[in-house]
Design a binder for these strands. Structure first.
Lengths: 155, 155
DNA sequence: GTAGGTGCAAACCGTTTGCACACAC
DNA sequence: GTGTGTGCAAACGGTTTGCACCTAC
């Protein structure tokens, strides 16, 4: 690990090691605050910006990517061989994963058609999970909007 | 349009009409600032928060959805019959669209398997476009990371 | 010794809100 | 008249940065 960072031109420090280790111990979709809390459990002296900067570094060296669910909190996903999509419940904020092998294949093909060099794929389904839907907790006051409505409205 | 809003319990005002109209005149991926500027071209008296609140309203009534490319700026896409994905160049920030009919079919199926009620699908490919790739403008200092590296690093 | 790393506090910036006034209905 | 909408300015919260000190190499 130390070697790995060295080859990228970064030094290893106790804080950095602790932060990296904590990050990989936490599951998926880690937020800065979660990581900060976990790090502070072990070493209260580590600063918030250090955690932040190292989380960015983890992304920079390609070990994680940012995940943005639109709720204002940036999460970080470990990069693994297996890409996955997210099911995001807009009510309870729960996050489930699903595999996207087939889809990624299609997307890679699409990117190729555009001569685009893909670095990563984001596949998210926003909606409501079984529980929230069943509990009728959801306040869906959406319009039944169609393309016709929109066109009509543009007049 | 006025009718449409009335049925949702909202009033029509000159500002609101101007904002809605401007939004639909602008293309895709409209940011608050872009919309604000466009609105102010016509009426300097409209406030920023009014634009903001109405943009939220447009989403609330189902005429647009938020698009988050991870660059800190929230954009808004008109809802149309045809869903589309985004090719986002991490270098020049250019955004291209591609059709995703086939993929959405797969995603809807997936959601069904999870008994999940999808509201919208986000499909994004981040990477580098032809131009940026060709110009070699891109400063890619990413690691060649594999799942093995990650595992190894967790020790 | 030197360049990069850390911790703190303050700045930043997109987003949200409280409030007083205005206006659609 | 009433309740929603507006405009302003200030608050908020996640993110970033300047700076002085520290430490890996």
């Amino acid at each position: 690990m130390k070697e790995f960072l060295r080859t990228k031109g970064f030094k290893m420090t106790p804080q950095r090691e602790l932060i990296f280790r904590s990050f990989f111990e936490l599951g998926e979709h880690v937020s800065v605050d979660e990581l900060y809390d976990k790090v502070r459990e072990i070493d209260k002296s580590v600063g918030y910006s250090t955690v932040w900067r190292n989380l960015k570094l983890i992304c920079k060296v390609g070990l994680a990517i940012e995940v943005n669910l639109g709720d204002g909190i940036t999460r970080y996903d470990r990069v693994t061989k297996i890409p996955h999509g997210h099911l995001y419940c807009m009510n309870c904020k729960k996050l489930e994963e699903f595999s996207v092998e087939q889809i990624v294949g299609l997307l890679a093909e699409t990117a190729g058609n555009y001569k685009f060099a893909p670095e990563n794929f984001k596949i998210e389904i926003q909606g409501y999970c079984v529980d929230c839907k069943a509990d009728n907790k959801v306040n869906i006051d959406k319009a039944s909007v169609t393309a016709e409505n929109v066109t009509e409205m543009k007049q």
